Computed example of a mutant assay.
Amino acid sequence: MFTPSGLYTFSGSRRTRHRRPRPCEIYPPSRRLSRDGALRHMTAGSAWMSDEESDKGNIAPGQLADLAVLSQDYLSVHEVLIPETTSVLTLVGGKVVHAEAEHCALNPPVLPGYSPLAVGTDTL
């Protein structure tokens, strides 16, 4: 799911890790992904699915500079807190497209100027 903050939510990652098809049913550990594996599926795996693995999906020379700075360490935070992970800074093509918290000064201007985001209202 794509959120307004420009980051795919991590609730899907938690479901992938727990492999709970139904709330009371849990797959055995042998059928679950590690956090590294889930992260790889969300990054390099997504690039592979869109046939763009030569351009994105990894932090490497020649790859597009799309990345997100997360609100907490996805690899070490307690599993129940993974869905609360958000992006505090998102770059697409090397340019800031979303910034929160201490990074707010980096936010690009909201266009057009009459956008509800620019004028501070959620109505048109």
Results as ranks from 00 to 15, higher is better:
Gly12Gln: 06
Leu81Thr: 12
Leu124Tyr: 14
Thr86Leu: 04
Pro23Asn: 05
Arg31Cys: 10
Asp66Ile: 07
Arg19Gln: 15
Lys95Trp: 02
Ser11Cys: 10
Asp66Lys: 02
Ala44Ser: 09
Leu75Arg: 04
Glu102Lys: 09
Gly120Ile: 10
Ser46Gln: 13
His98Ser: 06
Met42Ala: 15
Ala101Arg: 12
Ala101Pro: 00
His98Trp: 09
Pro109Phe: 07
Ala65Thr: 02
Ala44Asp: 11
Glu102His: 04
Gln63Glu: 04
Arg20Trp: 12
Ser50Tyr: 14
Ile26Asn: 13
Pro109Gln: 06
Ile59Phe: 02
Val80Arg: 09
Ser30Thr: 07
Leu7Asn: 05
Phe2Ile: 14
Ile82Tyr: 00
His103Arg: 12
Leu7Ala: 03
Thr86Ile: 10
Leu106Trp: 08
Leu81Asn: 10
Pro23Gln: 04
Arg31Thr: 13
Pro116Asn: 06
Ala105Leu: 04
Arg22Pro: 06
Arg19Asp: 09
Ala118Lys: 02
Thr16Asp: 12
Ala60Val: 09
Thr86Tyr: 04
Arg31Asn: 12
Gly113Lys: 13
Ser71Tyr: 01
Val110Thr: 15
Leu70Trp: 03
Asp122Cys: 09
Tyr27Glu: 13
Arg31Lys: 11
Gly113Ala: 15
Thr85Trp: 02
Glu100Ile: 00
Glu84Cys: 01
Arg15Asp: 15
Ala47Ile: 11
Glu84Asn: 05
Ala101Val: 05
His78Trp: 03
Val119Ala: 00
Arg32Leu: 07
Asp55Ser: 09
Met42Leu: 12
Pro23Tyr: 12
Ala105Glu: 11
Glu102Gly: 08
Pro112His: 09
Ala44Glu: 13
Val88Met: 07
Ser5Val: 03
Thr9Asp: 14
